[in-house]
Design a protein around this nucleic acid. Sequence first.
DNA 1: CTGTTAGCGCATTCAC
DNA 2: GTGAATGCGCTAACAG
Lengths: 336, 336
Amino acid sequence: MAATIRDVARRAGVGLGTVSRVLNNSPLVSPVTRERVLDAIAELRYSPSQIARSFSSGKTLTVSVIAPFFTRPSVVERLRGIESALHASGYSLVVFNVETAARRDACLHDVSRHDRSDGVLIISLTPREDEIMLLREAGTPVGLIDTEAEGMYGVRIDDVYGGELAVRHLLDLGHRRIGFVGDSEAEVQDFNFTSSRHRQIGYLKALDALAITPPPEYQRYGVHGRYEARLLARELLQLAEPPTAIFAASDTQAMGVLEAARDQQLRVPDDLSVVGFDDIDVAEYLGLTTVYQPLFASGKRGVEILLCLIAGDLPEPPSEVLPIKLVARGTTAPPA
Amino acid sequence: MAATIRDVARRAGVGLGTVSRVLNNSPLVSPVTRERVLDAIAELRYSPSQIARSFSSGKTLTVSVIAPFFTRPSVVERLRGIESALHASGYSLVVFNVETAARRDACLHDVSRHDRSDGVLIISLTPREDEIMLLREAGTPVGLIDTEAEGMYGVRIDDVYGGELAVRHLLDLGHRRIGFVGDSEAEVQDFNFTSSRHRQIGYLKALDALAITPPPEYQRYGVHGRYEARLLARELLQLAEPPTAIFAASDTQAMGVLEAARDQQLRVPDDLSVVGFDDIDVAEYLGLTTVYQPLFASGKRGVEILLCLIAGDLPEPPSEVLPIKLVARGTTAPPA
DNA sequence: CTGTTAGCGCATTCAC
DNA sequence: GTGAATGCGCTAACAG
């Protein structure tokens, strides 16, 4: 059916090694011969079989990415950065979406086999000890995005510092009763997500600097999402002494907080200040004060690190930290 | 390094054909032998090479999907449906993001090669005549999602009808001066997007049924996005006789329209009614009246159709039409 | 510079 | 039922 390299060789009257060299842009071919081969390729409308090629060379020119909840705006933006950088390098991108703990484990297992892709990118999930072992044994290069692990390479941000940024902003405005809405314990455990917890640590740290210890009921946890966050914020706002400001561990959750405020007829920022995290697209639309992090760039940088690893080099430092910053918009103001 | 089928055969004291049979669940193996082979596999921690397997069998167990602007919420939701269905079938998903006309063409060309994936899914892009030829020649099965083409299979909605639904809703409320905000001509041409145009046809059709002919200046086009839509809506609202309602070709664009209303101190829905299209996640949050379409299901169905094609069956009907419906929320009301 | 050869790991014939 | 032989299309190492 389709022409093979042998057909081309015959047609061009050369050996098939020569055709292979032309295909791989080897300089060891005379211009005349190259021309002849190129002609034959064109005439036969030949296109080399990618499968045979990767079988023979052992490289798949493919990178797998494990993306938990890839509908989340922050994840999508990272993926966009990944796809863009990867495509520019001639690699294909295989996507695994993870929405359950079971699939998290299965994917990490699947992907650690070095025969399906030349490398793996993991977003936001922190591999466990045994999984790191598995990955290492398989020899599959791994780039971590938005997380870190002992002896592994990747790119991330300082979530603790981000939490501090958010809460310091509220403190500077004069708030003292500040609530927190973050991911549920179960979720953190199931997926080994760490950002919500780290941001909370930053929250506590900023408060502690002013010798403030928030009561436990000021810190609420629920499954990541707008709806859950709305319920949590409602609880917060119905306390005898409700917070005057709420720091949400993500913009999505901040949206839920805004809904809760609306439910309670509270004006934002007059009656309640709200800070989110991520600076996703819709944050600007909502005028949400939030902590910006370079999502697209994190994907891009993750790819660069992975390609570096695939090439056999070791990036320095192993875990790169990207800069973040507070973006003050309309949902924060001094307390009434 | 890693164990091969030969190692397993030796270890189990059988021929390597037998091992292959065990791997492929052939019934032509005695239980005793199978057990022995299975043991050897376990002891050697053998796992068959996917590359070698696809090289030998000619199947890649991979499906490519071309997704234009895959950060758009509607596209992400379709992708989620695709990934979910595909994973359940043991296929890997390779994603191509298209954001320029050049890449649109390049991707369609790349993907038409039958040696990288067993099939192709195309979202929202309508292949041109020559591209259809290319795809057909290569013999690569193709599933179309959110679009249709002569002689090709896929799943879509009736966008014209959707436009009618939206505008009829406004007419029923008593509106007569209804504006339209949709994709730019350039964009439609570059990517061969059709939905915006079809929805506009529905808009015109609904108006025509009441013998209303909207003036050309009531219909505005710009690059798809919130910001552009906001500018377009501003122009609309600054007309001498501005519309009392605006139908946007997508929820994202409807968000821009809402911003424009806010800019002009117009209250929604009191001073201006707004209808979107797609019912993306954030529409509910905003209380946006819109036309719902089954995004997740479209991805899922697209996969089913493609797998059907890969298996050699021809789905009936070739172009399946999914149901849609109007979702009335808070951005529409009778005119003042 | 160029032609030839030896596998890559597996599925798939065949004989037995 | 089972083992041995062939070939998928290409790259890489070698000999010329």
